[in-house]
Computed example of a mutant assay.
Amino acid sequence: MAADRPWDDVLAEADGQTVDLWMYGGEEAGNAYVDDVLAPAAAELGVTLRRVPVADTGDALDRVLSERQAGVTDGEVDLVWVNGENYAAGRQAGAWLCDWALDLPNRRYTDPADPLLTDDFGVPVEGCESPWHKAQFTLVYDSARVPEPPTTLAGVLDWAQANPGRFTHPAPPDFTGSVFVRQVLTSVVGGPGEVPLEFSQEAYDEYAPALFERLATLSPALWRGGETYPQSQQELDRLFADGEVDMTMTYGPATLADLVADGTFPETTRVLTLEEGTFGNASFLALPSTSGDSAGAQVVADLALSPEQQAAKADPGTWGQFTVLDTGRLEDADRAAFEELPASPVVPPYAELSRNAQPELSADWVSPLDEGWRRSVLAP
């Protein structure tokens, strides 16, 4: 959308369009939110929102790149709930439409200086994707089984070795498993700020050996002796729910309250707040350059950024995702909707959870560390 194009023109063009939102299909609460809350609101604006579940958002990127190569201008992907790695790869390949997201009317409710909204895994956003919600990498434990939890990540690893079989993590390249490996990297080399955010082979050669040595030492003490790993966060959550391990982990801790409320997780589930902090980031919606319904996609992205939708999505009973809005910029009634959200005995407020939040390493770190883990920790 050009900055000088009236929003009413975008709404008029979007009327009657169908927007295919490709998103990870394993997030049940997220699926329900899109189907039951966001889609009906989009319909009121004349846009049909159709959720397309995928096992990996890389599938959406692959489809967009195939369409670009074929010269398609009315592609099957109109909006993508994209992760930082796929956003970076798509930016390099010209997969995403740019110069639209900063002009959405509801963008005025965000803080333009918020670093989580200006960079995505080290890649400038620059109006090429619209923020959806914030996330914080979080370790989770059962306080009934771990009454005196460690307070640092180094302490967690030591605890795991002292309690064989009670801890594990998803195997990279699972998203949560990958971020756990990166988090351990920052810990073993001396803490946040020691590893350069930008990837270089020199930095990898300097810092990665200590990471893989620590994880290889830890592996025999993990669940099933480190002979096998959960393949996803969902598998790890099942182990935690069944009492096979005492900790799990997530980049979406706001959903924990609902998992406790519905009995999936024990009532004694608690968030493990680490002294040094953990990685924080934001989720975004990207608009493919091959979309034939880009006006409708912009309308949906703007709607998703509205105070009403952000508050609904932040409710633990709906999805429980942290807002990207700066609530100080909202009207009193909209701000009240956030203030009235139920407090959780499981999940601390975002301000507490994100204390000492660390910026994510750039996306270029992800694949080398995943492959290095496979060769150095899994293969032996």
Score class of each variant (00 low, 15 high):
F240L: 04
P209F: 05
W365F: 09
A379V: 04
V299T: 06
T228W: 07
P131I: 10
T273K: 10
L222V: 00
Y350I: 06
P150G: 05
E213L: 02
E76G: 08
N31V: 11
Y87W: 09
E67L: 10
V146N: 05
T250K: 01
R214K: 12
S306Q: 11
V47R: 01
W81G: 03
V271I: 12
D9V: 11
A95S: 04
A295C: 09
L211K: 03
V181F: 01
Q231L: 15
A297C: 10
G296T: 03
V52A: 07
E76I: 06
P220Y: 04
E340A: 14
T151M: 12
S130E: 03
S66A: 15
A312Q: 13
D62T: 14
F212L: 05
L65E: 15
P105M: 08
N281V: 03
A93P: 00
D242Y: 03
L236R: 05
G25K: 10
D99W: 06
V19Y: 02
L305S: 06
G328T: 11
A41C: 06
L21V: 07
P345Y: 11
L21F: 01
Q309C: 08
D20E: 12
W223F: 09
D370F: 00
V77R: 09
V156K: 01
E13S: 11
P173F: 02
S187V: 02
L330T: 02
E227T: 09
Y251P: 07
F322E: 00
W81L: 14
A101D: 01
A95K: 00
L157Y: 01
S376D: 14
T176F: 09
A12M: 07
E28W: 06
R5T: 15
R182L: 15
K134L: 13
G177E: 05
M249L: 15
G252D: 11
P220W: 06
R91P: 00
L369E: 02
A312D: 14
Q358E: 13
P209W: 07
E194W: 01
R182I: 08
W22K: 01
L49P: 00
Q201R: 14
L65S: 12
W96A: 00
P380R: 13
P253R: 04
A162T: 13
Y109M: 06
L236E: 12
E206M: 02
T48S: 12
L65G: 09
L330N: 08
T228R: 11
L65H: 03
R107T: 12
D246C: 01
D332M: 04
D142Q: 08
G94I: 06
A135T: 13
A333N: 11
E129H: 11
D36Q: 15
P172L: 07
W223R: 03
P170A: 14
G127L: 01
